[in-house]
Simulated assay, not measured.
Amino acid sequence: MAMSGGTDDGEPMMEMNTTPLIDVMLVLLIMFIITIPIQTHAVKVDLPQPSNEPQNINVEPDKNKVIVTPDGQITWNSQPINEVQLRQYLDQTVMMNPQPELHFQPDPLAKYNRVDQILAIIKRANVTKLGFVGNEQYRNDF
């Protein structure tokens, strides 16, 4: 670092040397960063508890039908279900041999975002036999 001398007339320098102050502040900052406890983020999730009761799972061995109603409700073989149940049913169908067909029929008035969410659930479940039904009613529209 360059040091500036006073004027040639012999007067003392009027500027304060801030280099030691900055060095002390940097050391204190590093010590403060090191001593901060690591933040642990925890998200509490209520997981379903396993039960010994036989589950009444409505999975057909040949084909199953998922319908999305205009209000966003999901139905599995005409029974209303939620997203967790849908994933459970899909996991069961993937394990079956041969894998049953999954017929997906969104209502024309269903919101696209909701239909997209349900298709994402189906994709994450690795369903290989998926068919869209009900589209034949639109064949003359285009």
Rank of each mutant, 00 (worst) to 15 (best):
N82P: 12
A2C: 06
Q105R: 15
Q92E: 11
I81E: 06
P20E: 07
I33A: 15
L102N: 04
V84G: 06
T93L: 14
M16Q: 06
I122T: 09
I22K: 11
D46I: 10
A42M: 12
M95T: 08
M13E: 09
L28K: 10
K44S: 07
P106N: 03
I33N: 09
G10V: 01
L26D: 12
I74A: 04
V68R: 05
N140W: 04
T35K: 08
Q105A: 15
G10Y: 05
A125N: 10
P100G: 09
N64I: 02
P106L: 05
S4W: 10
L29S: 14
P12Y: 02
N135A: 04
E136H: 03
N52A: 14
M96V: 01
I36E: 10
V24I: 13
V66Y: 02
A2W: 06
A110Q: 13
D91N: 15
L28G: 12
I118T: 02
D91Q: 15
P54L: 06
K123M: 05
D62E: 12
N64T: 09
G134H: 07
N52K: 14
H103A: 05
P108N: 05
F32E: 12
K111S: 13
P61G: 08
D91E: 11
S78C: 06
H41W: 12
M31L: 13
Q55T: 03
F142L: 06
M16P: 00
Q99F: 01
E60G: 06
Q73A: 07
G6W: 05
I81P: 10
N64A: 12
I74V: 13
V24S: 12
I118Q: 10
N56C: 08
I22P: 02
T7W: 06
G6V: 04
N17K: 05
K129T: 01
I57P: 07
Q55K: 12
L26G: 03
F142M: 02
S4T: 15
N97Y: 00
Q79F: 03
E136Y: 00
V94W: 07
D46C: 05
M1I: 10
V59T: 14
T128Q: 14
M31W: 08
V115H: 08
D91M: 13
K65C: 03
Q49R: 12
M13F: 10
M3I: 13
T18N: 07
P70K: 15
P37A: 11
K63L: 02
L47T: 08
I36Y: 08
A125E: 06
D62Q: 14
P37K: 10
M95P: 00
D116P: 00
A110R: 11
P12E: 02
M16V: 03
W76E: 01
Y89S: 00
D141S: 10
P61N: 13
